[in-house]
């Protein structure tokens, strides 16, 4: 509890310092940010729309990292998920669009991301290829796949621009209000958070995954199939990132082009860390960064500081977080090692 309050306070301080560094008056700057993020229902909608893909990718990172596989490939899985959804969309074209489209396309997105991530997981347990490296490289490949898809098989009918055709409105995620971007994806993301929580903390599978993540050697010494669990964790992680791609595609953009990647896959990592790698902890973390993105739009209208502010704040927050956990770790270790009294 105290830690949460301290973290929140720390984030405000970081925010204020960053604003000062950007040469923005701190008081009015904070006010503009808050207004842009929570000022009215439109602002809140903007915040939630930005928080949605962040939450999903951060959940993906949480599952993988908690199982000891450091998935850095959220971005690639996000892209591949969207491409799979678009491919299914193309296949469905002869039928009349409806909610069944949405469901099928989202399932395709999940499977696409899951498959793409499992590839890295499989390479790790079978061939010992470090997850960090393989997933980073798979990110680049994913961008190429997207480029190839929108130039080739998924190119729009008009054939002018390298992009897919727009998804019919009937197949898009439901919007709550015509004037706002807020779509049903936010509900999906929240449900996903609860599902991941239940998986990790209430099921045998999630429990064994956490044991593997905390101490792989001990897991193996206890006959826990660590390899298989880590592949499963990668699949779930990739599925969540793929879903994020599908949700962004079917909730906001409606068509894929080479500008589709917006780094949500990467941004999920700091959000997951800030959320303490806990499926419920990442909800406020995602909202916080969603609010920063929404608020910084407003800020850039009145001051020289813009969206880049968000990245700076993210970086500082993550560095701070890492520094803090190192201190904690150092303090814990000698205590854990004392072999004295029982």
């Amino acid at each position: 509890m105290i830690r949460t309050v301290l973290t929140a306070l720390g984030l405000v301080v970081v925010l204020a310092l960053t604003l000062a560094c950007f040469g923005v008056a701190v008081g009015p700057g904070l006010l503009l940010l808050t207004e842009g993020a929570f000022g009215d229902k439109f602002a809140i909608a903007r915040t939630l729309v930005k928080a949605t893909p962040l939450l999903l990718t951060a959940l993906g990172m949480t599952v993988a990292w908690k199982t000891g596989v450091y998935n850095i490939g959220g971005e690639g899985q996000y892209i591949v998920g969207a491409v799979f959804a678009a491919a299914i969309g193309k296949l469905l074209l002869p039928t009349s669009p409806g909610p069944i489209w949405t469901v099928l396309m989202l399932i395709a997105a999940i499977l696409g991301g899951a498959g793409y991530a499992s590839l890295a997981g499989w390479l790790y347990v079978r061939r010992g290829v470090e997850i960090v490296i393989s997933t980073i490289l798979l990110n680049f490949i994913a961008i190429q796949i997207l480029g190839w898809a929108v130039e080739g098989p998924l190119k729009e009918k008009a054939g002018q621009v390298p992009q897919t055709d727009s998804i019919p409105d009937a197949a898009m995620l439901i919007k709550f209000d015509r004037q706002m971007d807020l779509h049903a994806g936010v509900v999906l993301a929240l449900l996903a958070a609860v599902a991941v929580y239940l998986l990790m903390y209430r099921t045998r599978l999630g429990f064994l995954m956490r044991v593997t993540g905390d101490n792989r050697r001990a897991a193996r010494a206890n006959q826990i199939p660590a390899d298989r669990l880590q592949v499963v964790a990668m699949a779930i992680s990739g599925g969540l990132c793929g879903l994020a791609g599908g949700v962004q595609y079917l909730g906001i953009v409606g068509r894929l082009g080479t500008t589709f990647p917006e780094q949500w896959g990467f941004l999920g990592i700091p959000v997951a860390l800030l959320g303490g790698l806990h499926p419920l902890g990442v909800i406020p973390a995602a909202v916080y960064f969603g609010a920063l993105f929404a608020g910084s739009d407003q800020l850039s209208r009145f001051t020289p500081a813009g969206t880049s502010l968000v990245y700076v704040i993210q970086a500082v927050a993550v560095l701070g977080f890492v520094a803090m956990s190192t201190v904690k770790w150092r303090r814990r270790k000698p205590d854990g090692r004392t072999e004295s009294n029982s």
Binding site: R204, F207, L208, R210, V211, D214, N215, R217, A218, A219, A221, N222, I224, G336, R337
Partner: peptide
Amino acid sequence: GYIPQDRQADGLALGLSIEENLLIKGV
């Protein structure tokens, strides 16, 4: 049952609770 020589490296998941460490076999 296996009680390894190095309890910290092979025996326990130090970042989990006592209860969870017991549960490793209790599952």
